[in-house]
Amino acid sequence: MKEVDARGLACPAPVLQTKAAIDEGVDFLNVVVDNEASKENVLRFLDTQGFDTSVDVEGGDFNISGKRSGVVPRSAVEAPSAHAEESKTMVMIATDRVGYGDDELGLKLMVNFIKTLEEMGSALWRLVFVNNGVKLAIEDSAVLDELKTYEADGLRILVCGTCLDHFNLLDRKQVGETTNMLDIVTAMQLADKVITI
């Protein structure tokens, strides 16, 4: 059981403190806030993180109890159980080519890079595509098969929703979960090592 006292704090501080507690991997927590807005915000946040909640009112304070329900799909906020013992490497790919100069060579290198990532074994914990990188996760990507294989083997692949939307590719994505910056930043915090290409 984790206790969070967020009384006297204005939004978004109570949500951020709750998030920090969840990031430690707790299954039960108690959050105390002293205003309606913070109560609503913390309840919403716990809801999106798959927690069952109840509220007790004590004087002017709201006591929010949260219990991880386990019904909601696991999100990047949680520590992964499968590779918990090993070091966690997150690879963030912000381009569809490796390096600058010759584009054709850059694409070849990227294909090779994605294929060779296999050598990291179970240390490879998250693969995140942002900006031009999201083009590797769509239907005509040269590495679609490799990515699908990784995903089938249990690797979590996150694809930036804002970026897909920007390139009008939302409905052409073929692999990975559409994600947001909060998931990406949280994954960075949880990772032991972040490699950015």
Binding site: C11, P12, V15, E36, A37, S38, N41, R44, F45, T48
Partner: peptide, 12 residues
Amino acid sequence: AAMGLIPGGAYK
């Protein structure tokens, strides 16, 4: 908003 990142003013 779904994540609870709503300013206090919105509730007021």
